[in-house]
């Protein structure tokens, strides 16, 4: 091998190959017609859009395979718009490809870096002007300016304070208290143990004092899932077992991971699954997490039956419900 390695060289831009329409007047005419037809189709599309808007009925539906039940007017307005826009585009591109010059041209690039003399002049001018302002010589001004500018940014932060109240104990409390009756969601009727068959699930909320509205904010913390198992299916410690009633067990429905409603109950395995991130809880073991990203079991609500035979809460939730927050003391679960 010699040191002089000969490399391939740039042969330069290839010669221009003429298209049909460049040489053949008939082909040129044909291309012209194609473009014109596309533009005419577009005009037709706009007519279709306007006609569908004015003359079609708004409430007519037709079933198409794959698409399903479809509103005819929306469909035809859309198809008209499709035709109107697509054909302008196709026409313009056909025009460019067939009839406009297709010879590539070369342009030179320029260097971005400024001329050395300009750069030097800039630096000199900058230092000169900075010197005129005297920022280097006047540290008192420099520092106080820094302080002022730094502080002025605080105002918007302070002004944003009123975007919401402080959380207080909101995340730690619910409307469940000792003796609160369980009512069905959304019917609002109280429930007796015999209303629930083995294997059944019900969503319940705490009964609110008359006149208190049921807000979404409350539901987001109060929602409870009631499940009836055969008592022998439980695998609970004595305290937790005493929180159940004749096989009925109650858990917060709000996922301890990110607050979704834990709504999927698998009757055979007694598993509760959160559809958001698939955290899975074992109902027989006090909603212990057996799979997924949740780190804590669903809080269990202690149940009893009141004098009238209705299911009621024995006590409030022993731990905060829902997802974690900084102030949450998770020492006891």
């Amino acid at each position: 091998m010699s040191n002089q390695i000969e490399r391939f060289e740039d042969p330069g831009l290839p010669e221009h190959i003429h298209r049909n329409a460049d040489a053949d007047p008939l082909a040129e005419k044909r291309a012209e017609k194609q473009v014109a037809i596309l533009f005419l189709l577009s005009a037709l599309g706009t007519v279709l859009t306007i006609a569908s808007y004015i003359f079609m009925k708004s409430d007519q539906y037709v079933y198409f395979p794959v698409m399903g039940s479809t509103n005819v007017q929306q469909l035809f307005i859309g198809l008209g718009l499709t035709l109107a826009t697509l054909c302008i585009g196709l026409g313009a591109i056909q025009w460019a490809k067939k009839l406009m010059p297709d010879q590539e041209v070369i342009a030179e690039r320029h260097e971005f870096r400024s001329e050395e003399v300009d750069r030097e002049e800039l630096v000199a001018t900058f230092h000169d002007r900075a010197g005129q302002a005297g920022i280097g010589r006047r540290p008192l001004i420099k520092r106080t300016l820094g302080l002022a500018v730094g502080l002025v940014g605080l105002s918007p932060l302070v002004l944003l304070r009123d975007t919401g109240p402080l959380p207080g104990k909101f995340f730690e409390t619910t409307n469940w208290a000792a003796g609160t009756r369980l009512v069905l969601d959304p019917a609002g009727t109280p429930i007796k143990p015999e209303d629930l068959e083995v294997g059944a699930v019900a969503q319940v909320l705490p009964e609110l004092p008359a006149g208190t509205p049921r807000t979404l904010e409350n539901i987001g913390k109060d929602a409870v899932l009631l499940i009836r198992l055969r008592p022998e299916d439980f695998n609970l410690d004595p305290e937790r077992l005493s929180w159940t009633y004749q096989g009925i067990i109650a858990f917060s429905k709000i996922c301890t991971h990110m607050g979704c409603a834990v709504a999927l109950y698998e009757q055979q395995t007694h598993h509760l699954l959160c559809p958001c991130h698939q955290s899975t809880f074992d109902v027989t073991r006090a909603a212990k997490v057996i799979f997924g990203p949740a780190a804590r079991p669903l809080p269990q609500l202690a149940l009893m039956v009141n004098a009238d035979g209705y299911l009621t809460a024995k006590q409030p939730f022993s731990v905060p419900v829902g997802p974690s927050f900084w102030e949450r003391n998770s020492a006891n679960g």
Partner: peptide
């Protein structure tokens, strides 16, 4: 216009 047309078609069907 082609992008618009394709989007309109998707929106329609």
């Amino acid at each position: 216009f082609i992008v618009f047309g394709v989007t309109a078609f998707l929106g329609a069907v």
